[in-house]
């Protein structure tokens, strides 16, 4: 191993160990430090720009480093992004806050871990709000990993208020306050059959308890017993299928949270009034967190994502401006 390599790797190990064992948890930068970091990133871009114009394009590893920094450092910043609540997210919140305690809510988790950065924050905020307002939550997934993501959001709620954990003062009882039906294969046909009977598609919940033995599910036969549906979706099957079947055929009032890539496909349904509100991507999640007052990862992530997006845009711009300036000089 070469000397520099050894130095770099030991530095990284030391830095990680400091992070793991010495730094305060959670780590938060003061506004001053945040500003300085941001200015430093800005300076880095200025240097990159000057170097590129001079005809000395920077090495790719520097690009990687800058992107890495742009992604990681905002995690620790406490910057209040001006989050403007868009009407479609407000709609979701309005619907949710109009529900009385004890309302039965169906939450469909149709995504997997790669899409979790965008969708999990929405689900987490939803779950916290639902527990706070005593909704009865029925979770399910049309994607195999969906039910696991659902459980994660329950855990997030527990972390927010430990009183909700099992054997606590204000315990949210599994099977009474919430239930996880698990995954069922069959895509839109699952929704189709749920229209007739939930039980036919989910004879038992995720933990093999028979449908009828779950107290919460006693009086829930199909969509007509559900007060509100919410769908967290990263693709197909997802929001489009839910709207076409559960909303159009069974009149389920429904809202949705989508990844940024997926959201444009759901807009037509929003405009036609088939969807009550839509949360799109990290920005939608952040707005939702702000509305519910349960600030979580979305607001942190949104900052990271914005920094990274700006970084990519700057890289493209720098490359092109430098290219044009050089071309002019040659002429």
């Amino acid at each position: 191993m070469k000397r520099t390599e050894l130095v770099v790797s030991s530095l990284i190990v030391v830095a990680l160990m400091i992070c793991k064992f010495l730094l305060p948890k959670p780590l938060l930068f003061s506004p001053l430090v945040s500003t300085i970091v941001t200015i430093l990133i800005g300076c880095a871009f200025l240097v990159i720009f000057i170097l590129t114009v001079k005809g000395k394009p920077i090495e790719r590893r520097i690009v990687f480093l800058v992107v890495g920094i742009a992604l990681v450092f905002p995690f620790f910043m406490k910057v209040e992004l001006p989050i403007r609540i868009s009407p479609e997210v407000q709609q979701v919140y309005d619907k949710m806050s109009s529900l009385p305690a004890g309302s039965k809510v169906l939450a469909a988790f149709d995504y997997d871990p790669p899409s979790a950065p965008e969708l999990q924050p929405m689900a987490d905020a939803f779950m916290k709000y639902a527990f706070e307002h005593d909704f009865k939550v029925i979770m399910m997934g049309l994607w195999p990993q969906g039910p696991q993501q659902a459980n994660q959001s329950v855990e997030a709620a527990w972390a927010y208020n430990p009183q909700w954990m099992p054997d606590s003062a204000d315990e949210k009882v599994y099977g009474v306050d919430y239930v996880n039906l698990g995954f069922q294969s069959g895509n839109e046909f699952v929704i189709l059959r749920m229209g007739e009977s939930f039980k036919s598609m989910f004879p038992a919940d995720l933990y093999y308890t028979a449908y009828d033995s779950v107290p919460l599910l006693k009086n829930i036969h199909n969509f007509s017993n559900i007060d509100w549906g919410v769908n967290f979706s990263a693709g197909k099957p997802g929001t489009v299928e839910w709207v076409q079947i559960a909303v159009d055929r069974h009149n389920l009032p429904m809202s949705a949270g989508n990844t940024a890539v997926q959201a444009p496909m759901a807009y037509p349904y929003l405009n036609a009034g088939q969807l009550i509100g839509l949360m799109g991507g990290m920005a939608g999640a952040a707005e939702f967190e702000k509305l519910t007052g349960h600030t979580g990862k979305a607001i942190t992530f949104l900052l990271s994502q914005t920094y990274a997006h700006v970084a990519v845009i700057l890289f493209i711009l720098i490359g092109n401006v430098a290219f044009f300036l050089n071309k002019k000089e040659k002429k």
Partner: peptide, 19 residues
């Protein structure tokens, strides 16, 4: 971009506990 966010969240949040 959000793919990497997930991994960094794991490293700095779940593992290092900084977030």
């Amino acid at each position: 971009m959000s793919l990497m966010l997930g991994r960094f969240d794991f490293l700095f949040g779940e593992w290092l506990g900084l977030i």
